[in-house]
């Protein structure tokens, strides 16, 4: 870990100003990922801007929107009554992530900003285009069991590790960010990026912008939901594949449905074609199989992650069935 300076601004403006003055700086909230990155020499900020003093810890209902402050802790969010009753999918996804200790430290904004867990990214003596552009992708010819099957590029096949973000992508959330030029809103599914030719960029947040909140619109997905996470260890393990499903069923017809996957792409992976195929259909195993088949079209696998295509196919059906019968 390199020596760094540390400031703890009291206002949003002061935090953004501090970042504008020093582009090697990083915001820190829970630090559950940033400290790892710093210890491994992956990120070498000369300044840390601690944002824990900022008033971004509120969870409130604003008309048809649930407003979640960026500094809300993952464990508090998962346990919040409004989340449990109105957005149970988010609660389930949060509780599937990390460990209790990490959830007690990790914030909503930090969770979105966490970087991939690709080993090549963390080992500075191995190549990684995300860490060091043009050094090559260690994973493509290396160990890639945990890596992407959708939306990857020849530069990077890393996956986004979050569970929370998969649920937020499914729930059509919006990200609120603040920067020197004021505030702006980013649809959640546009927040994270695919690697393309710029794998060093995880998301569309500008360097001196700060996430202030996430908003979730009111929706009917309170009953038929499922967050299925398949992993190598029962807790504290990243997803091999995860599936978030939320649906609204009446008269044995799927009126509305959201499906997203984790562990398969550089960003939370929404499945619009599968959603479309199921909308207006009966919640049957046959229809779920058809949807799963649509979902895995275009999957590209590598030496060690071929199983993910089959696992995705199975897991989507299992999650759909579980949500439908919930």
């Amino acid at each position: 870990m390199n020596p760094f300076s540390y400031v703890r601004p009291n206002s949003l403006k002061a935090a953004i100003d501090a970042m504008a003055r020093d582009h090697s700086a990083r915001f820190i909230a829970g630090g559950t990922n940033l400290l790892d990155l710093m210890k491994n020499g992956v990120t070498l900020p000369e300044k840390l801007i601690d944002i824990n003093q900022l008033p971004l810890r509120e969870i409130r209902q604003d008309g048809n929107t649930l407003h979640i402050g960026a500094l809300v802790l993952n464990s508090n969010l998962a346990a919040h009554e409004l989340v449990k009753t109105q957005h149970p999918l988010l609660s389930e996804a949060l509780l599937a992530g990390a460990s209790q200790q990490l959830r007690n430290m990790a914030t909503v904004g930090g969770n979105m900003m966490q970087r991939t867990r690709c080993s090549y990214f963390y080992d500075t003596s191995m190549p990684c285009n995300k860490r060091q552009p043009n050094s090559g992708c260690g994973a493509i010819g290396g160990i890639n069991r945990m890596h992407a099957i959708f939306g990857a590029s020849d530069n990077c096949i890393a996956v986004h590790p979050s569970d929370m973000c998969v649920a937020l992508a499914a729930l059509d959330a919006t990200v609120l960010v603040a920067g020197p030029k004021g505030e702006r809103r980013i649809p959640f599914t546009d927040f994270h990026r695919l690697p393309g030719n710029t794998p060093q960029l995880d998301n569309n947040l500008a360097k001196n912008e700060l996430i202030t909140a996430v908003e979730i619109p009111t929706h009917p997905f309170t009953k038929h939901i499922c967050y299925l996470k398949v992993r190598d260890r029962a807790s504290y393990a990243f997803a091999l594949v995860s599936v978030a499903v939320a649906m609204d069923i009446s008269d044995n017809v799927i009126r509305n449905i959201r499906i997203a996957m984790g562990g398969v792409a550089h960003k939370p992976w929404r499945l619009p074609d599968a959603e479309k195929a199921l909308t207006g259909k009966a919640p049957t195993s046959d229809n779920f199989r058809l949807a799963a088949n649509i979902a895995i079209q275009g999957a590209k696998t590598y030496a060690h992650n071929g199983f993910k295509k089959d696992l995705a196919f199975n897991s989507i059906q299992t999650a759909l069935l579980k949500a439908a019968t919930a």
Binding site: R117, S119, D232, R233, A234, S235, Y236, A237, F238
Partner: peptide
Amino acid sequence: YADYHVPVNAD
């Protein structure tokens, strides 16, 4: 410890 999986209580 995150990627080398020793069993946790849940296992």
